[in-house]
């Protein structure tokens, strides 16, 4: 499923909304999550999962081809932990 298909499904279930409104709703949700993570917050959605940011400190790396040392800058990466309910729903038949 891609974003436009998600928008279409939601639009079909809400015939009183314009497609453009649904696009804005879906964008608002993911923009809000992005903004939260960019400003150092986390987002916890019970039953779905939690988005957070992990810090990777600066380190001295090595170019695997040449063996040369390179300084790798500190960075922050997004992290997602699947919620318990979704994890269980993925394996109900197992």
């Amino acid at each position: 499923m891609i974003k436009s298909e998600l928008v279409q499904i939601i639009a079909n279930k809400n015939p009183h909304l314009f497609l453009r409104d649904v696009e804005n709703i879906v964008s608002a949700i993911f923009d809000e999550i992005t903004d939260a993570l960019a400003s150092g917050n986390r987002v916890e959605l019970r039953g779905f999962g939690a988005f957070s940011v992990k810090n990777r400190p600066a380190r001295t790396g090595r170019n695997p081809r040449t063996g040369e040392s390179v300084e790798v800058e500190e960075k922050w990466i997004p992290f997602f932990k699947t919620g318990k309910e979704l994890r269980e729903r993925l394996n109900v038949d197992k």
């Binding site: 608002a28 949700i29 809000e32 999550i33 939260a36 400003s39 150092g40 917050n41 986390r42 987002v43 916890e44 959605l45 019970r46």
Partner: peptide, 12 residues
């Protein structure tokens, strides 16, 4: 950095 936790209510 704020360090808050957002929930469904904040997305709504």
């Amino acid at each position: 950095m704020e360090g808050k936790t957002l929930t469904r209510a904040d997305l709504a």
